[in-house]
């Protein structure tokens, strides 16, 4: 094969390679652009949802404001009173306490239940 033919074949192969490379790079580029857009959309959606959540959290916290709850409690639960510290006992104190009325069946039953759980 002459040098002329060899050069021609090499040129054709080189041009084909360049075309293939060009198409490949272009496709790759558009794929990346598309993925970047998708990522950007997802990120925006995450931020939007996080913003919405923050507003809901703020609203929930506002609804749970102690002063507001106190007003609602006095309005809708007039017979309820805040718990007093005397009503809170350590578990051991409760177990060791002597009942004033030993015959109280309900208390005795509860005591038995606690003992069985121990």
């Amino acid at each position: 094969m002459s040098i002329k033919n060899k050069m021609r074949k090499l040129s054709v192969l080189f041009i084909c390679f360049l075309v293939f490379l060009g198409v490949g790079v272009s496709k790759f580029k558009y794929e990346v652009v598309f993925m970047r857009r998708t990522l950007s959309k997802i990120n925006n959606e995450i931020v939007r949802i996080a913003d919405d959540l923050r507003i809901y959290e703020a609203e929930w916290s506002y609804l749970n404001d102690p002063k507001r709850l106190a007003i609602l409690a006095s309005k809708y639960l007039p017979d309820m009173k805040p718990i007093e510290h005397k009503q809170i006992l350590r578990y051991n104190d409760f177990i060791n306490m002597e009942y004033e009325n030993k015959a109280d069946a309900k208390r005795q039953a509860f005591d038995n239940l606690l003992n069985s759980l121990m």
Partner: peptide, 12 residues
């Protein structure tokens, strides 16, 4: 008197 029930863990 008001906060004691929130923070108490028993006999004080």
């Amino acid at each position: 008197s008001r906060i004691i029930s929130l923070i108490s863990d028993g006999n004080l």
